[in-house]
């Protein structure tokens, strides 16, 4: 039995040591299996819709990761430098604004962003699908950026407590190089990568949820058909909703279970994509954190 917190050398122990890799493999394998199953049993138009939705959602998720990393890095460094500068009032105001934004639930920020997007679509200011996806990614990035800002600040503050920074300053290296290159790039990549994995999961969750919510009716002028197809919006279609509703049939009639995977495939596939991705991202981030002991 392990007493130092490390796991014992059992099969599970070996699994825990490479949990992130195991779950990454499981995610890829799960999605591949789903695609093969859908290619065999799902009708062609629905399969095309599912593929488009998956690609759009993944693209948005990746864009959220990139945008939040850029925005969070810059904001974190600027906040840190402001805190050490003479501009105390500016720093106080910036911290106040950041804390106020932190207290607004992420979904509300995204909802407001979508409300603006529907207004822009209605006014025909935004037309291109690519720009719409970028807008969505930007809004979600704004909602989750504080997670990156916190990580950046934590890392800088941690290195500030060591002799590391002072020694480098004595060597004549500029403060901005120490922060951006030595601390964040060379010594915090794994922390940031861990945050990015978590953010990818959050972005899929927020995007799917908001697209589903819009199906309740954010605008009568701009319906889901005007917005890019994503996993959330595909789940919100009548077909998918009926497929999900059919799940409760197995509670009263367990024999219905096999039919579920053949006749209600669109809704089930979309729901599986969302839920399985969330589960895998959580475990990948978790395993990565534990493997590299990023506490």
């Amino acid at each position: 039995m392990a007493t130092d917190g490390s796991v014992s050398p059992t099969v599970s122990g070996k699994y825990y040591r490479h949990k992130d890799i195991v779950w990454l493999t499981a995610w890829i394998a799960g999605m591949l299996l789903l695609w093969i199953w859908d290619a065999l049993f799902l009708n062609k138009p629905a399969l095309v819709r599912l593929q488009t939705a998956l690609v759009n959602s993944a693209f948005t998720g990746i864009m959220v990761v990139v945008l939040s990393l850029l925005l969070g890095w810059v904001a974190g460094v600027v906040l840190h430098l402001l805190g050490r500068s003479q501009w105390k009032k500016t720093f106080a105001l910036a911290t106040l604004s950041v804390n106020a934004l932190r207290s607004i639930p992420q979904i509300i920020v995204v909802l407001i962003g979508y409300a603006v997007l529907t207004a822009l679509l209605h006014e025909e200011i935004i037309r291109s699908m690519f720009v719409q996806l970028l807008w969505i990614a930007g809004v979600i990035a704004l909602a989750v950026v504080l997670e990156v800002v916190d990580t950046v600040n934590e890392r800088i503050e941690y290195f500030r407590t060591l002799d590391f920074v002072d020694a480098m300053l004595c060597c004549g290296i500029s403060e901005s190089r120490i922060i951006n290159v030595e601390i964040l790039w060379k010594n915090s990549r794994s922390h940031l990568l861990h945050k990015m994995i978590a953010i990818f999961g959050i972005s899929i969750f927020l995007q799917s949820s908001i697209d589903f919510i819009i199906s309740v009716g954010l605008s009568t002028d701009v319906s889901l058909s005007n917005l890019p197809l994503t996993l959330g919006s595909l789940l919100a279609t009548l077909d998918s909703k009926q497929d999900i509703l059919a799940i409760s049939n197995i509670l009263s009639n367990p024999g219905y279970l096999p039919r579920l995977f053949i006749t209600h495939l669109q809704g089930l596939s979309v729901a599986f994509c969302i839920v399985f991705t969330l589960l895998c991202m959580f475990n990948i981030a978790n395993g990565f954190q534990r493997r590299l002991r990023l506490t």
Partner: peptide, 14 residues
């Protein structure tokens, strides 16, 4: 890990 609406819709009829 299911979003709330997936669980709710799958139980809505019961």
């Amino acid at each position: 890990f299911s979003p709330a609406y997936v669980i709710a819709y799958s139980l809505k009829t019961t």
